[in-house]
Amino acid sequence: MELSVIGKYKLLVARLYGELDHHGAGEIREAIDRELMRRGVRNLAMDFTNMGFMDSSGLGLVMGRYKKVSAIGGRLIVCGMNNNIRRIFQMCGLQRIAIVADSLEEGMEELDK
């Protein structure tokens, strides 16, 4: 995973790679939460463009991060999902609470609105 900050949007960007399951979710969660605190940003983008596989552990990770950023008045962007990952997110209604976008740029445009 790569973490970077886009100051203009007070946005932490987490670019995820490979496969997301229970085995790897804990480490990703800790890293994102640590950076959110340290960088003092309030919005979070999780970019799935380079993620080929995800199971329900990813849902738990994303819903948990949604709770974190909404508690500090921020918003969550989830972008770049393949069809399978998108279907899993739709099952729990992620599109109703987060900005779901094809690309990070598209997600950031929503933050402007």
Binding site: A25, R29, D55, S56, S57, L59, G60, L61, M63, G64, R87, I88, M91, C92
Partner: peptide
């Protein structure tokens, strides 16, 4: 408490 979504069986069914 482990941030499990509770969607495992629902996904298997789907």
């Amino acid at each position: 408490e482990m941030e499990r979504s509770g969607m495992g069986f629902t996904i298997m069914e789907a």
